[in-house]
Write a protein that binds this DNA or RNA. Structure first.
Lengths: 190, 190
DNA sequence: CGCGCGATTGAGTAATTTCAAATCTAGTGG
DNA sequence: CCACTAGATTTGAAATTACTCAATCGCGCG
């Protein structure tokens, strides 16, 4: 199961079996049930989560009680409240499970330890974060320059798997429109 | 002048004089004039730029010819088309100077060389990228959950220096509204 | 002084939201 | 197998918000 993690790392840097075992020993595997919280607003965020299976959402609740999806998480992705995790501060967002999930939890201390001990791993995390930044930048451009329909189409093209697992109202929240507006877009496919 | 860079690095990891000299030798210092392009859509993006002085904007031109500001750059910040830079592909955005600028240019090859040779530097870039990540995430949340006035106030609070250098129409473009809308917000201060 | 750029204002239009109600769907228990 | 329910989606109509386009204003610089 943790092969998925190894494959992801090895796409960037190769590891011996013993090296990977050592890295893996810094993760804790945990199962979460549908609707269970993984990160909760106002609490500490000790872990970053690598997703072995399942589907999650991270979202911000604004002063009017409206939820805004910051990120979805699926197999092979990472998810946490990065602001709180990196700064070791209090979460401002929630993350919960849309499905039952199996996660590999990496504490901040273990992440820093691995990065300090193994240059390779620091390299891996740098590259991974670079990719994450590119994705975030694309999202910003999409939010700024596309209308609702275009944003929807772009997301559908990028992550078709998402649409199998996630209700449309969450997609709407991710795109920054109401579910009613999304419904009125007259989506062709499906 | 390049002290600014050293200070930024040393906020994360300490360097000897010789180490810093070595690092610095991988940068090329260049001056750019107001309105000059630093990155141009459709071209290669060999460099990431550390800003010694001046002010820049990176922006995306959509199919209607409308410009959307992705990022501003000021003293002590970094700027480039990260998607094109990291993937060594063709720029999809433009970056040009709002003022005369003095930049330290770091080629992708030199960045990777430094990261491979000096674990410290890889550590620095990982941490820097983490921070960038947090900033991008905040921006997304702001775009999703704040109205124009709130986004404006938040930006003003975060980067008051910007408002000295940048015309309001660019601020509007950064916030994702038209200049007319921004003008109608009835900004209190100033 | 006058040009040019940026900022503001007005009026009509387009897009999105809100609120309410109706419809559809998947899963549960009898 | 069917009825029931909760959640998700759709539809309608009115209200709001932002946009477009055009005109005007203000100011600094040559």
């Amino acid at each position: 199961m943790s092969d998925i993690l190894r494959q992801q790392i090895e796409r960037i840097t190769s590891l011996s079996d013993t090296e990977f075992e050592y890295v893996l020993s810094h993760f804790v595997s945990k199962k979460f049930k549908k609707h269970q919280f993984v990160v909760q607003e106002g609490e500490n965020v000790p872990n970053d989560f690598f997703i072995l299976s399942g589907c999650l959402k991270s979202y911000f609740t604004d002063k009017n009680g409206k939820e805004h999806i910051l990120q979805f998480g699926m197999k092979d992705w990472w998810i946490t409240d990065y602001e709180a995790y990196y700064n070791q501060s209090i979460a401002t967002i929630n993350i919960d499970c849309i499905e039952n999930c199996e996660l590999l939890c990496l504490s901040f201390q273990n992440r820093e330890k691995l990065c300090a001990e193994m240059h390779k791993i620091e390299h891996f995390f740098r590259k991974k974060t670079n990719k994450h930044n590119v994705a975030l930048q694309r999202r910003i451009l999409s939010l700024l320059s596309n209308n609702a329909k275009e944003k929807y189409d772009q997301l559908l093209q990028l992550y078709p798997q998402l649409f199998q697992k996630v209700p449309k109202q969450l997609i709407a929240s991710y795109l920054g429109v109401t579910r009613e507006t999304l419904s009125r877009l007259n989506i062709s496919s499906k």
